[in-house]
């Protein structure tokens, strides 16, 4: 199957952008709410799963093909952005709750 490389790149960039934004915002929210240890990680994975669900519902409504496998919508960039999440989480937690 011939692919359009420009659109493949655009989709990957769009997915990466929203995943990164989710980590940054989610980290801020977890810090504000003062989540600690396992609760913070659970919050991140819940938010990521929710974003994946939203994407799955969006893509099931249109008949186009956007990724080679639909699994990519849910699982890609989740663990790459976990570290961004931890960074923002600890930073905002420190700003709000410690000082």
């Amino acid at each position: 199957m011939p692919l359009n490389p420009r659109n493949v790149m655009l989709n990957t960039k769009s997915l990466n952008f929203s995943r990164t934004a989710l980590s940054v915002l989610g980290g801020g929210v977890a810090g504000i709410l003062g989540l600690t240890s396992i609760l913070g990680f659970l919050f991140y994975f819940a938010a990521s799963g929710l974003l994946g669900l939203v994407y799955l519902m969006q893509s099931s409504r249109s008949d186009g093909m956007f990724f080679l496998s639909k699994q990519q919508l849910v699982t890609s960039y989740v663990f790459e952005n976990l570290f961004t999440y931890i960074l923002m989480w600890t930073l905002v937690y420190g700003c709000v709750h410690v000082y």
Partner: peptide, 14 residues
């Protein structure tokens, strides 16, 4: 953010 990231585009060249 989801609206700024934009819609996905079709990857099948055909």
């Amino acid at each position: 953010v989801l609206n700024i990231a934009g819609e996905f585009k079709e990857i099948r060249a055909t």
